[in-house]
C-alpha cells in the first residue's frame, strides 16, 4: 500500500500533540474561557480545530493522488 504523504502525517500529528501528549500543560481550571474551565475549553476547541488540520491533510493527499495519476498517464 502507498504510504501517506509527510505533510498529511505532520498535520495529523498536531491534534495528537494538542489533546493527548500535552495534557499536563492544559489540565487545569484557570484561566476560565467563556466560563469553561481551561481543560474543558481546550478539548472542545480541538473538536473544531481537528477538522481544520485534517482538511489540510486531505488537500495534501488529494494533490499527491492527482500527481501519481499524471505519472501513470506519462508511462502509458
Amino acid at each position: 500500500m502507498k504510504r501517506p504523504s509527510l505533510g498529511a502525517i505532520l498535520l495529523g500529528l498536531i491534534p495528537f500533540i494538542a489533546v493527548c501528549f500535552s495534557v499536563s500543560l492544559w489540565d487545569r481550571i484557570s484561566p476560565t474561557v467563556f466560563g469553561l474551565p481551561f481543560n474543558f475549553f481546550w478539548l472542545v476547541a480541538w473538536i473544531v480545530l481537528t477538522p481544520l488540520c485534517m482538511w489540510g491533510a486531505y488537500r495534501f493527499e488529494l494533490r499527491r493522488e492527482s500527481g501519481t495519476e499524471n505519472q501513470k498517464g506519462g508511462e502509458r
Partner: peptide
C-alpha cells in the same frame, strides 16, 4: 475528559 480527547483523534487515525 478522556472521552473528549479520543473522539477527534480516532478520526485522524481513520483518515
Amino acid at each position: 475528559l478522556y472521552i473528549l480527547g479520543y473522539q477527534p483523534l480516532m478520526y485522524v487515525v481513520s483518515f
